[in-house]
Design a protein around this nucleic acid. Structure first.
Length: 822
DNA sequence: GACCTGCTGCGGGCTG
């Protein structure tokens, strides 16, 4: 089967001509590979015609009449619903202009059930969908028939999928597809990554041969500027309040800007700050993940129409389509990784041959260092995506548990056949037969401790060891819970219509954290979606609100999301930067800060751990600078506190940021030489960790996520969605039962892995502790050191328990200002 | 009165 489409078929090349386009070199390469029946991983920056490249082989084939009258010919999978829908629209145009007779349809959770049913009976030629929909379709007994004739599989933005649970699930789907449609060629599309080979292995899940790697010519490096404001760069804090006037001035000079911030709270705050000084009546919008979808779609449409001048956004605008001609990107706060900064800058100026432009606005002095490091890293082409940090990701076991049920829903199988297929998915290459059997046992009856509950029985073994799903009803319930994304308990924010008993929900505004909502009383005001609202009532996880005038006590809700730590490579660069190897491109305030540190204490050296001990306001402080990211530092802080307590030193608390951790206590630290070495010995990750983790809310949270994904607790049941709180209660109960009676339960293992990976950053911490053993530079001083000041200020902000509150911050501030002015 | 660091993504299908 040698398809001669290394050259474009006439109809297609005429279409290219009409548009004044020509094939880019890498697009031709894709066609050549396709002609040789190869698959490809296409690595190209946004705006390089990547999606078109992915579809070209299929379009060529179609225009040569290769697609039959009926049957699914090409399947496109995107991580975003909106992208699937939009790509479908973009595809319609060339197909119509070329005159191809093709049915192209999208399928997402928003697609009406009737159309989905029709798609199942009479599939379109090209179907555009999401990983979750793929999992749903693949769980049906008729899936083999539906996908048997598939020729092309196009997977978009896979760099964003592969290193996650969604990627685990999709890899299992790919392994299944390899069996159903072995001839289907795969075209994976990705932004630049550090380990293309690892991504290629993921893409090859289940396939006989790995894809070839095709790279688009690189875009010119972006142009950066780091904001040097007239105002003072703060010691600490993340609001970037000092820079708002400067940022506003830049917005005035641009046509359409995106102001990226790191958290939803920051987005709301930055929006308010800009709004307060909006003398030119710029049209400024707000976009983040907790705002109602309708609001976000309106903002996106306004961007496309040129009806806004600036949008303050979180990473909701990182991925996806190009809304409008963005000509300026501003990153407020720490960039956190070079890949992420590259991605964000790439949202502007989508022409392959012109550089993008961005302004970085660090919110404090540590962030200044990080901005400088990030600019250099991007210029050097550094990639530090999560994928690159963990090239051989071990697939999550809760995801596997979900897939096993789905898979047997499609087709009864023996355990041997199922195991072989699963192990062919890249994230599960390393899964042992024993682990697999435990996952099966879980699906069979919930595991030993839960055996008594019949509702945990999802699969049964029949004659000759053939496994099948227990019954149709169970499978239907299972299908309602397919997917790997779990939410924290949230309350819906709705406008109030009517009053008293007649109070009804009006417009949906979005969601806020359940606990935050529960903490608000009627009359309290808060900012949400850029407006001030007053609480009327909280009822059944719905927060009824009405418009209010902001006052001094109007709060901005915070959210319980993930906390992205700074990437390893960026943190290492910062360490290198300040170690003084060369002249520093820092503004005077930052340079003075570092100079003062060098004079009063010392600058941390790469590969060594700086430990400072000093008294302040009747407390004794230990500042450590591992440069390991906030998650790892947080974990370190917990473990340190436990050890210090055991040593009778009366620790009070700790604070952590991306670069350092600060612990404080009532008693002075011992003067003995080996004290710090002992305190920081890597064995703290043994019993100390286990003991703490067992009781910590972190494990409960991780378990709640895993229990949902594995189907132990149901997120949604027929007729209703379960409230987040109810879910938490039942999963906490099960957690306690399992911990007591079956501590090696597969879901505890899954939760443990998730916690250590996403909440504790254990590998990173362990690596650092080992590397610093015997390499501690300890310094004792009589007053706080300059590098420790940001953390001291951090403490003041936190509601520290009891007696730590008396930290005299103003005094401290004056002190340091005086030191600064020297 | 000043101060605010916890991102994003998706999600059933039948009968009547």
């Amino acid at each position: 089967m040698n398809k001669p489409h290394a050259e474009l078929p006439d109809v297609l090349s005429r279409w290219f001509d009409r548009r004044g386009w020509s094939l880019r070199a890498y697009q031709r390469e894709v066609l050549d590979l396709a002609a040789r029946n190869e698959s490809a991983l296409v690595i190209a920056p946004t705006g390089a015609g990547k999606t078109l490249a992915g579809f070209l082989p299929a379009l060529c084939d179609v225009s040569r009449g290769a697609a039959g009258e009926d049957g699914l010919f090409a399947l496109y999978i995107s991580p975003l619903k909106a992208l699937a829908v939009d790509v479908r629209r973009n595809l319609e145009l060339p197909v119509a202009e070329i005159g191809l007779k093709l049915r192209i349809e999208a399928r997402t959770g928003d697609t009406p059930a009737s159309r989905r049913a029709r798609q199942q009976k009479k599939p379109p030629h090209i179907l555009l969908t999401t990983p979750e929909q793929v999992a749903l379709m693949f769980s049906r007994p008729d899936s083999a028939k539906m996908f048997a004739g598939l020729r092309y599989l196009i997977l978009d933005e896979i760099h964003a999928l592969a290193p996650s649970k969604r990627g685990d699930l999709l890899a299992l789907g790919l392994a299944q597809l390899a069996k159903i449609a072995p001839a289907a060629q795969r075209f994976g599309l990705s932004a630049t990554v550090r380990e293309p080979a690892a991504l290629a292995r993921w893409l090859a899940s289940g396939a006989a041969r790995p894809p070839r790697i095709v790279r688009a010519e690189g875009a010119p490096p972006p142009r950066f500027e780091i904001l040097e404001s007239q105002s003072r760069t703060p010691w600490a804090g993340h609001s970037a309040r000092y820079a708002v006037a400067d940022i506003y001035a830049r917005l005035r000079g641009a046509k359409l800007s995106i102001v990226f911030v790191n958290t939803r709270l920051q987005a709301e705050m930055m929006f308010q700050l800009l709004w307060d000084i909006n003398e030119d009546n710029l049209r400024i919008a707000l976009h983040h993940g907790s705002l109602d979808r309708a609001h976000r779609r309106r903002v996106e449409a306004a961007m496309a129409e040129g009806a806004v001048d600036a949008v303050v956004a979180t990473s909701t605008l990182d991925l996806g389509l190009d809304w409008g001609d963005v000509d300026l990107v501003i990153q407020v706060g720490a960039p956190k990784s070079a890949s992420r900064l590259t991605q964000r800058v790439g949202r502007s100026n989508h022409r392959l041959d012109e550089p993008s432009q961005a302004l970085l606005a660090p919110a404090n002095r540590f962030e200044w260092l990080e901005c400088v490091a990030a600019v250099e890293a991007v210029a050097a082409g550094v990639q530090d995506n999560a994928e690159g940090d963990a090239p051989e990701r071990a697939g999550a076991l809760d995801v596997l548990a979900q897939h096993v049920v789905s898979r047997l829903g499609a087709e009864p199988m023996t355990a041997d056949a199922l195991f072989a297929e699963i192990a062919s998915a890249a994230p599960y290459h390393g899964v042992s037969r024993e682990t697999f059997e435990r996952v099966l046992a879980f699906a069979r009856n919930g595991g030993y401790a839960l055996k008594a509950y019949e509702r945990f029985e999802k699969i049964r073994a029949g004659a000759k060891g053939v496994l099948r799903v227990a019954n149709a009803k169970m499978l239907a319930a299972h299908r309602m819970n397919i997917g790997t994304i779990t939410d924290n308990p949230m309350a819906r924010v709705v406008t109030a219509v009517g009053a008293g008993r007649a109070l009804k929900a009006g417009r949906e505004l979005g969601t806020i954290d359940s606990l935050v909502a529960a903490g608000m009383a009627p009359g309290d005001t808060f900012y949400f979606g850029g407006e001030a609202w007053a609480v009327r009532e909280l009822r059944e996880e719905k927060l009824f609100v009405s418009r209010a005038r902001a006052n001094a006590s109007t709060i901005i809700p915070s959210y319980m999301g993930g906390r992205l730590p700074v990437s390893e490579s960026l943190a290492a660069r910062v360490a290198e930067l300040i170690s003084g190897a060369r002249a520093l491109p820092f503004p005077p305030q930052v340079a003075e800060w570092l100079a003062a540190q060098a004079e009063i204490s010392r600058i941390p050296r790469p590969g060594r751990l700086l430990a400072e001990i000093f008294p302040h306001a009747k407390r004794h402080y230990l500042a450590l600078y591992p440069f390991a990211g906030r998650l790892a530092h947080q974990t370190l802080g917990v473990l340190l506190t436990r050890r210090l307590a055991r040593a009778g030193l009366a620790p009070i608390g700790f604070a952590a940021n991306d670069y350092a951790v600060l612990a404080w206590q009532l008693r002075p630290f011992p003067e003995t030489g080996g004290f710090l070495e002992d305190l920081l010995a890597p064995d703290m990750l043994g019993d100390d960790l286990e003991e703490w983790l067992d009781e910590s809310s972190i494990m409960k949270r991780a378990f709640r996520n895993c229990a949902q994904v594995a189907g132990l607790v149901e997120r949604r049941a027929f007729g209703q969605a379960k409230s987040g709180r109810a879910l938490t209660i039942s999963s906490d109960l099960i957690y306690d039962v399992l911990r007591r009676y079956e501590p090696d339960h597969i879901l505890l293992q899954a939760a443990r892995l998730e916690a250590s990976r996403e909440m504790l950053d254990l590998d990173r911490l362990a690596g650092k502790l080992v590397c610093f053993a015997g390499k501690i530079d300890s310094v004792r001083r009589e007053r706080p050191t300059p590098l420790a000041v940001p953390l001291l200020l951090e403490i003041g902000r936190e509601k520290a328990p009891g007696d730590a509150r008396d930290l005299a911050l103003e005094e401290l501030g004056d002190d340091l200002l005086a030191g600064d002015a020297r």
